[in-house]
Design a protein around this nucleic acid. Structure first.
Lengths: 191, 191
DNA sequence: TGTACATCAGTGAACGCGCGTTCACTGATGTAC
DNA sequence: TGTACATCAGTGAACGCGCGTTCACTGATGTAC
């Protein structure tokens, strides 16, 4: 189980190992529980309590990691969007993230943020801020706050609806096309 | 427990009683389970199996009822929207529904529709259709399909984000105002 | 450099819990004659 | 109108399950002298 030369007993970095085990389970569609995560990490059911206060703390850490990944996926490489089509790609990337990692997405958004978890709240706020910056850049004259909420809402809503099968599409490419189309249709309808 | 003159043994309409007990529990924020619903209906844990194949079937019936209620709330009284401000009120009503009945909303949208449950799928599709009709009425020249998805996505996304505390507002009125503002900001940004 | 000891990160047995579901059952209902 | 009987809608005991969490513990690590 230990990849380095560490003995089995003292794991080395169990916290990280638990998080990545949990992440793998989420991505594999396996049901997620403290015990199952411990099992997968090859460690006794109670070992995680050395690193996480309780089950919720693990889940929150996972969610925070998810937010950071999403943020990277949106901002990283691409840079801030400078045009309307760029913004549409933001929405496309957001939805693609949700479909690629559905269980993680549900953990991130499925329940109210625990106010006590700073890391998680911060990560979510950073996401909001990124969207606000992006929209402000493309539409400097508009109400940035309202627009950022709307943009986030649109991307997030489409993500949820596709994720839950309320909207259907045959392939990931078709989803992307439809998201792009929906975004552009709504933005240009007032013109 | 039986409000009519029926004996306790033969309940009369246990199916309906179970559904309304379940609905009350959802609205009261109580955790939802087959056993708990039976308990609340004053009936043995196994009685529900006379009326529902399993736990999922109960949940699906609940979701279908939720969709019908939401549809009523949007269409009922108000009539089809005929203008942009009317559409904004649609979004406001949608979000208000989610905030008023959060647990029900989660049951409706929290997991992929079971394709086998016709009633539920039909109810969800009817909602989509209503939105498409509404948008088509206000914007007859636009791509109705794309616009309907966008409109639904926007309303749904805002609902989820407020529900999960990712967007915050001090009161229901403030939520309504922000939803209205977000909708109008996005629609008019291209102008 | 070697040793004593405190600290730290695991173990493993045990707890109580509520859940979904099965089973054989029984009491109430309604229908055929 | 009265009775026999099939059907239907409940009961209640029991099952196995996995969960989160606690507890006292022990083996490994690193530090002070």
């Amino acid at each position: 189980m230990s990849t380095s030369g560490k003995t089995a007993y003292h794991h080395g970095d169990l916290r990280a190992a638990l998080l990545s085990a949990a992440m793998e389970m989420l991505e594999g569609g396996e049901p997620f529980s403290l015990r199952a995560v411990a099992r997968r990490a090859g460690v006794s059911p109670t070992a995680p309590y050395r690193h996480f206060k309780d089950r919720d703390a693990l889940e929150s850490a996972l969610a925070a990691e998810g937010f950071r990944d999403l943020l990277d996926g949106l901002g990283g490489g691409r840079g801030l969007p400078a045009s309307l089509p760029d913004l549409a790609e933001f929405a496309v990337a957001y939805v693609a993230f949700a479909l690629r990692r559905p269980a993680l997405f549900r953990v991130m958004f499925g329940k109210p943020c625990d106010g006590a978890d700073d890391e998680r709240v911060k990560a979510a706020d950073a996401l909001h801020q990124l969207l606000a910056d992006a929209l402000d850049r493309v539409f400097p004259d508009a109400d940035a706050e309202a627009l950022a909420s709307a943009g986030w809402g649109l991307a997030h809503g489409l993500a949820c609806l596709y994720l839950d099968g309320k909207l259907r599409a045959a392939s990931d490419e078709e989803v992307a096309g439809r998201v792009r189309g929906a975004f552009l249709a709504l933005v240009s309808v007032g013109a």
